[in-house]
């Protein structure tokens, strides 16, 4: 656990022994330009390029993610957010580039080793283990289990105590996520939203330093959304770092300390939610540069022949000047 002693939700962050400010406070007053360096980065990517045949799905020059903060990764469909996630967690390998977690390079490392180092991810399409009960799903998350090795598994005495303490921790988490009444149900019987919760709770069983959530709100009903938001915030309060991909802008603006925007494989902007919300490049990337005139044009039968600009580089620059 990266115990950033007592950082609170609204907190301005704490100063690490090395004099770096971690947590959301470290992001205050940062220049909102692409690739800006953070005071205490936990995850850094450099020149990461992933091509599928002729299509360049991800092409990220430089990005840093602040420790102890909640960072949102947003962008229109097909922007390469999930691919970038897969690359960072080593579920996919890029053609070029380096990236590091806590200063350790991750290139070429097996995904389960990345997970053991404290970088845990969830999936866009939830991957609960349908034929395992909720509590078994949770127990699976615990790390360093003696009973998971072949020979020690045969002797219950060697792992019973550990299993018990893992179960207690799992039960606590289930209570926290209000899922304790479903403890003995098969995960396959849960609804989509409950599966999202279970996946997040299971990820927490690993005690991750950095947790990467791929669309945690997709398919979750509004009632559950609010509690899911609170859970994500509470992760930060525990001193964990959260990076999430999301389309739900309410969530992005509500809980994130920092927002990174991708479009067509590149990072086109980053900054606080307010800064990004005002950024013309972001608005254009999402809606097309003539989004205001679009409706007018249809109403007046005057369809303009424009194309959506390909937006790259400096977010503060209006894209229309150079990108045509």
């Amino acid at each position: 656990m990266p115990a950033d002693e007592g950082s609170t939700p609204e907190a301005s962050g704490t100063t690490t022994p090395k004099g770096r400010v971690s947590g959301p406070g470290g992001l205050l007053g940062l220049d909102p330009t692409v690739g800006v360096s953070k005071p205490d980065p936990i995850l850094v990517a450099d020149g990461v390029v992933r091509r599928f045949g002729g299509v360049t799905a991800v092409n990220v020059d430089h990005v840093e993610f602040q420790r102890g903060a909640i960072t949102a990764l947003i962008g229109p469909n097909g922007a390469g957010k999930t691919t970038f996630f897969n690359l960072l967690t080593c579920f996919d390998q890029p053609q070029e580039g380096d990236w590091s977690f806590n200063g350790q390079p991750l290139k070429g490392i097996a995904p389960h080793v990345v997970a053991r180092r404290g970088l845990i991810r969830t999936f866009q399409l939830t991957k609960v283990l349908t034929k395992l009960t909720v509590i078994e799903n949770m127990r699976l998350g615990a790390t360093g289990q003696r009973g998971e090795r072949f020979l020690p598994a045969l002797f219950r005495g060697g792992w019973r105590a550990q299993e018990q303490s893992n179960t207690e921790r799992a039960d606590d988490l289930l209570v926290r996520f209000k899922m304790d009444h479903m403890r003995e149900q098969f995960a396959g019987q849960l609804s989509g939203g409950q599966r999202k919760l279970l996946e997040m709770a299971r990820a927490l069983m690993t005690e991750p330093e950095l947790i990467m959530l791929d669309e945690p709100m997709a398919g979750v009903n509004p009632a559950l959304k609010q509690s899911l938001l609170e859970h994500v915030k509470s992760l930060r309060d525990e001193g964990r770092t959260v990076i999430f991909v999301e389309h739900d802008m309410d969530m992005v603006f509500d809980i994130s300390d920092w927002v990174v925007v991708m479009a067509e494989g590149r990072i086109i902007a980053e900054g606080t939610p307010e800064q990004v919300g005002r950024n013309q490049a972001v608005i254009d990337a999402y809606l097309g540069s003539h989004h205001d005139s679009e409706l007018d044009a249809i109403i007046h039968g005057d369809v303009p022949d424009h194309e959506v600009p390909i937006v790259t580089g400096d977010p503060d620059r209006a894209p229309s000047e150079e990108d045509r």
Partner: peptide
Amino acid sequence: SPWGRVLRSIRENEDAARS
């Protein structure tokens, strides 16, 4: 045992086990 639990989790979804 937990070993068997890992096997069953691989049967259900190996990427989840990996993650």
